[in-house]
Design a protein around this nucleic acid. Structure first.
Lengths: 194, 194
DNA sequence: GCCAACGTACCGTCCAGTCGGTCGGTCGGT
DNA sequence: ACCGACCGACCGACTGGACGGTACGTTGGC
């Protein structure tokens, strides 16, 4: 789904073609539209308008609405993955570094807004491949399972973090910042101390 | 939104009119349709068909699609609330009884399927009153806050339980039964022991 | 005979996807 | 240096179908 080495790479990778910029604009518009106006407002015309292209132009890049959503999902999932790994490297824990990253990632509610939007969209409009998100989350699950934690704690970290942004997504009386912090700190103390 | 004592209660409450049975059938069909076929398949015609009535018949009971979803949401939220209170009474803890109930409720994934479906539907189709679900969850949050637990633990119980059924809902690599149990047991041990 | 509880036919709107076309650039031949 | 063939990027009008909602007819119980 993610094409890095494209069909006819003209000269060098650093030269981002205008087409790629348009693609990114469309992807960004998609995420922005969903998180601001809701899934029901996600129409090709609106996305195109927001991205500054025509509907025809949008469909030139993404062959269908499903393809657009799949690409948006892929994009946000991948950037979340990169952010998680960067956080894991940054904290430099010998054990539980990924768990620490997983917790830290959700400390900022804004972090997860776009990813949440993409997942909601993908779940709502049925994707050909609803496994795309599940596969990524399963990879994170495995990573967490091999992070030097016991099983129960690994599961707890995952459920708490994912639960938090899902609660944010649906606005199900999300905990206020202090409670959020206190709870995450409490979970963090279950991580191995080296 | 919740009409218990309706407009013209004829004689006694135990006499359930045929109209009420139809209403319930429609509500059940709504929940079943969403959880089996997904939100995008939730159309008035399909719900009516599944409930064994015509679209006109459906609209006789629920004036609009939004009204239907609001009623379905209200219905599932209310039954979840009753289940939670029954569980809380059953465990008879002096402190943390509601927290215990909140944990127990999500031990069985099937428990939450319908509620989840209704909430998803409500979130997707924008409801006039998106606060309906939030209000109920906020009531549970308050109940949890006054359950004899410290704030961090109360928040943790809520996030873990809600996180679990939200993960189930989106099928985001849900933990297997053993991990689920182990994690919930671990959280349960944070409750006050009397 | 009246009203609630339906059913049936229909309308207007919205929207995904199609299609023919425009425009700027590039590349090979000369 | 120039030209024509070609191509990717993009536009915008259009269509066909789905869907929410309306208008009106019908029936059965009280």
């Amino acid at each position: 789904m993610a094409e890095a080495g494209d069909t006819t790479q003209p000269s060098d990778a650093s030269e981002r073609s205008r087409a790629d910029a348009t693609r990114d604009a469309i992807l960004a518009a998609t995420a922005a539209l969903v998180s601001h106006d809701g899934v029901s407002k996600l129409t090709l015309a609106r996305v195109a308008d927001r991205a500054g292209v025509s509907k025809g132009g949008l469909l030139h890049h993404f062959g269908s609405k499903q393809a657009l959503i799949a690409a948006a999902l892929d994009h946000t999932l991948e950037s979340a993955d990169q952010a998680l790994h960067a956080l894991a490297v940054a904290n430099g824990r010998p054990r539980g570094s990924f768990a620490q990253a997983y917790i830290d990632y959700v400390r900022d509610p804004d972090h997860t807004a776009n990813a949440a939007a993409a997942i909601l969209a993908a779940a709502t409009l049925e994707l050909d491949d609803p496994q795309a998100a599940a596969a990524q989350f399963d990879r994170w699950r495995q990573r967490l399972a091999n992070d030097g934690l016991d099983d129960a704690t690994a599961t707890l970290v995952r459920v708490v973090s994912d639960g938090l942004w899902l609660i944010d997504l649906f606005d199900l009386a999300p905990p206020d910042p202090e409670q959020r912090k206190a709870m995450l700190d409490q979970v963090e103390q279950l991580l191995p101390t080296d």
